[in-house]
Design a protein around this nucleic acid. Sequence first.
DNA 1: CTGAAAGCGCTAACAC
DNA 2: GTGTTAGCGCTTTCAG
Lengths: 350, 350
Amino acid sequence: MKFDTVTIKDIAKALNLSTSTVSRALRGSYEISPETKKLVLEYAEQINYRPNPIALSLKERRSRAIGVVVSEIANTYFSQAINGIESIAYNKGYHVIITQSHESQEREKVNVQHLVSRSVDGLLVSLSSETSDISFFKELHEKGLPIVFFDRIPDEIETHKVVANNYQGAFDATEHLIFQGFRNIAHITSSAFLSITKERLRGYKNALEKHGIPFNETLIKHCNHGGMIVEEVEEAVNVLQKGENKPDAIFCAGDRITMVCFGIIKELKLNKELGFTGFTNTNLAHLFSPTLTAVRQPAFEIGQVAIEHLIQIIESKRPITKFETKMLDTDLVVRESSINVNKEKIKAKL
Amino acid sequence: MKFDTVTIKDIAKALNLSTSTVSRALRGSYEISPETKKLVLEYAEQINYRPNPIALSLKERRSRAIGVVVSEIANTYFSQAINGIESIAYNKGYHVIITQSHESQEREKVNVQHLVSRSVDGLLVSLSSETSDISFFKELHEKGLPIVFFDRIPDEIETHKVVANNYQGAFDATEHLIFQGFRNIAHITSSAFLSITKERLRGYKNALEKHGIPFNETLIKHCNHGGMIVEEVEEAVNVLQKGENKPDAIFCAGDRITMVCFGIIKELKLNKELGFTGFTNTNLAHLFSPTLTAVRQPAFEIGQVAIEHLIQIIESKRPITKFETKMLDTDLVVRESSINVNKEKIKAKL
DNA sequence: CTGAAAGCGCTAACAC
DNA sequence: GTGTTAGCGCTTTCAG
C-alpha cells in the first residue's frame, strides 16, 4: 500500500511474532492466547493497521463488494433503488460498486466482466433495454456467481428476482384513464422483450379488456432505447397524432419515456386534450404543470429486498436451489395530467 | 478466479513455456520472439484469457480504477458530472467506482479509505456539506495520491480543481432578479464553509452592491444539510416569511435546496408574489409551473475536465507541482418563476 | 530469447 | 499456542 504501508508483517516484526500468529490474532482465532491477542490488537490499533482488501480478494476469491449494473443512475428509479441497496449493504459490511450500461448490451457486458474479475461476491442487475441475449449472465450464474435481478429481469435464469407489480401498476393506470372517460389510450413503452414491457403491456390490455375496449395494435409504440433518444419518442407521438386512430390519452412506461413524452406533449400544447400518465419515480411530479399522474414504484424497497436476497445467497452455506420472485406493489398517484377536462366523466364500474 | 479459471499458468503449461515468458509475450515485451508471441497471443485469445486485475493491483499498486466521491447520485448535477467522468475514463481504459457520502463526513471518510485500500489510481472528490476538516484528504494527497476536487473544493489543498463559475452564476441570477424589480432578495444556501457557498454568496452580495442595494444578513439562510432535510428548508422559508424583512424574491444555491424550496413556495401558494430562481441542473425545469428560472452548471463538462486532469496526474512521469483551478461558465436560463408579475419592471442599467 | 525465483499481503495447512 | 511454508495470479530482476 502506497498510502497505508502498515502490513501484517510490520506488526509481526515489531512484536517479534510470525505473520501467521498476527493474522490469527487479528481475526480472533481461538488458538491464540489472550495475551498475544491483546498485544497484537492494541498494537494494530495504535499504528492504525488496515488489512489490504486486495490481498484478501486474491487469496480468498471474495471481496465483500457487490456489483450493481443499472442502465443509468440519472434515472430516479435507479438512484432510489441504489440508495436502498446501499442502506443495507453498508450495515452488513459490503461495499457497493455501481456501474451504468447506458442501455448498451456491450457496455453491460464489459461492466460485468470487470466486476467479476474484481471478484465481487455477487451481482445486482437490471438489464439494459438492448439486452436480448442473456446467455452471458446464464453462464456466470451456472458457474456459481450469486446474481439477483431486479426491475428488468430475464425469464430464462433461475435465481432470485425482485420487481414491482408492473402488471397491476399498468392495469391501475389504464383503468384510471378509462374511468376518466378516455377510450383511445395509447401506450408508449420500451423494447418489446424487456420483462417490464411485457408485464405493463399485459396490464394495459387487461384493463381495456375488462372494460370492453378493443385492443388496437397501432396504439402501442416501442422506443427501443427506453427514451434515451428523444427523437424516438417524438416519432412515436407524431405517428400517433397523425394516425387515423388518434389517441385521447397516453400511458407511458418507464421514467425516461414518461418525462420525455410529457415534455413533448407540453411543447405541442396537447395537455388540455390529452390524458396523460406514466411510470415514474420522480419526486418532482407535483411541481409540474399540469401536475403529473404517476405510477410510482417502491424503488428504495426493491433495492433493499434485492440486496438482502443477494447477501443471503452469498452467505448461505449450501447452494441455493429454491429461488423466488418477489413482487412489490406500485402506487398510482393521481394528479392533474390524467384528469379528463373535456368529456364528461363516464361512469365505469369497478 | 472462480469464474474465469484461465491463468497465465494454464497458458504456460499448455504451451510448454514458463509463466514469465507468457507474461512477457502477453504484454508484447520486445524480448520475446515473434513466433512465441504469436503462439501465446493466439492461444490466450482462443481460451479467452483475461488477466486478473486483483493480482495486478496487488503487485503493481495500481488498479486502473479511479474513485469518485459525491454527496448523492440522485442529484442531477452529480449524475451528469459522473456521466462526463465515465465518458472519458471508459475510453482511456479506466474504471470508475462511484460512492456517495450522503452529505456525511464520516461516510465520506469510510468511502475514501475503502477506495484507497482498493488501490484506486486517483480520486475525484466533491466534498460533503458536513466536511470542514480536510486534513484527511491532505494527508492522502501529500503521500502522493492523485486527487482532483470538483464542485465543492477545499482551499487548503494544492491540487487540480474544477468548478463552475459560481460567483458569476450567483451574480447573474441576483442581478436578473434586480432587473425584474425585486429588492428584497433572500438567499438560501448550504453550509457556510463550503467553497460553493462562499462563492455564490459573494456573487449575490456583489450584485446587490453594484445596484446599490444594502446587504441584509437576515436574508441569508444556511441549510447545513444541503436540503437533504426538508424541515431545514421549510424553517428557512418560514423564518423569512415571518420576519420583519419579508423577501420579495428568493435565490437558492444548490440543486436540492432549489427543488425543495420551489416545492414549499408552491405549496404555500407564494409563487405569484415571490420571484424565484436557483442553481439546478434538472432537465425538467421547463415542465414546472411556473417554469423555473435556473442557473445551470456545465456538469458533464466539469466531470470531463476533472477526469482529464486526474488522468494527467496519474500518468505523468514526474510529480506535478503546478496545479490549476479550472473554472467553467454557468448559464442562466430565464423562465417564468423569476418574472416579476406585480411590480412594474424597474429599469436598471447593466 | 527464455526460465527460475522472489515477492506484493494475506491465510491456512502442517509442523512442533 | 506459535512458527514455517506454500500459494492466490502476476511481474520482474537475475541468470543463462
